[in-house]
């Protein structure tokens, strides 16, 4: 498997996209520092990038890469190589190079300007989101043989989790606002990895936002060790579940 990962990495580097992505993140982070020296504001701006751009880039790039690697996958599968290894190699190589790009692009400027605890959280949640959306992208990719369709499905995932889901959540809150909704909304948040990452970050950055009776409830939950364990395991679940599902489909897929 390590041998295959090597070649996937090689292929990823050839496309240069990962390098562009790193450069983009670097430029953004440096620009935020130039515009505003305040760490809090820089991290907040990066939070928007993390919640919007990282999932989008991860999901689209992974899907395109999967279809561009179709020949490679076909070639490998005619060889004495396990399907699982091929799939995992592709997955690990894409996810780790995207994460690396994110960590380098955001982390380097902070190394220069001085690190800060929320930055670490930002990096960790960013990496988590990257893996989640690479998983979702692979899932979308094995669902169909049509590249355009797969990209469509992948974009839909992104659109759903970053916008539609929150709209539905707002609707639920609006409709049932007369009832105590804390537990319900808490579990609904857990069903969206982007929301989960956002809440974890907000707890680090501007807790003031989460004040008031309702906010205090969420803060107590997510601020506790149990809450952190809860968020981390849910994010892990969001990574593993689509990935396992995709691998199962891939194992039975006709090439």
């Amino acid at each position: 498997m390590v041998r295959i990962i090597k070649y996937v990495f090689y292929d990823l580097l050839r496309t240069r996209f990962i390098l562009f992505y790193t450069a983009f993140l670097l430029v953004c982070t440096f620009a935020f520092f130039q515009l505003d020296g305040d760490f809090g504001k820089v991290v907040l701006s990066l939070l928007n990038i993390m919640l919007m751009a990282v999932p989008l880039v991860s999901v689209v790039f992974s899907t395109i890469h999967f279809f561009n690697s179709y020949e490679f996958i076909e070639l490998m599968l005619a060889q004495p190589v396990n399907r699982k290894s091929v799939f995992l190699s592709e997955y690990l190589a894409v996810a780790s190079s995207l994460s690396l790009a994110f960590v380098a692009g955001v982390g380097l400027p902070f190394l220069l300007y001085g690190a800060w605890q929320p930055v670490a959280t930002l990096m960790v949640t960013g990496v988590f989101l990257t893996w989640v959306f690479v998983s979702l992208a692979f899932f979308a990719s094995v669902l169909t043989r049509d590249k355009a369709k797969a990209i469509g499905v992948a974009l839909l995932f992104w659109f759903y989790f970053s916008l539609i889901y929150d709209g539905l959540l707002l609707w639920v809150i609006y409709t049932f606002s007369d009832y105590p909704l804390e537990k319900l909304t808490l579990s609904l948040i857990a069903l969206n990895p982007i929301d989960l990452a956002r809440i974890v970050m907000i707890l680090q950055l501007d807790i003031s936002a989460l004040m008031g009776y309702t906010g205090a409830f969420y803060k107590n939950f997510f601020g506790s060790n149990l809450g952190i364990l809860f968020s981390v395991s849910l994010l892990l679940l969001w990574i593993v579940l689509p990935m396992i599902l995709a691998m199962r489909i891939f194992n039975k897929k006709d090439l």
Partner: peptide, 20 residues
């Protein structure tokens, strides 16, 4: 204004939806 009326909506703070 929304959070004034529905405090639970605070959970959507900093989301894309709120931005839009």
């Amino acid at each position: 204004t929304i959070v004034e009326r529905m405090p639970q909506a605070i959970l959507l703070w900093r989301s894309f939806l709120v931005l839009l």
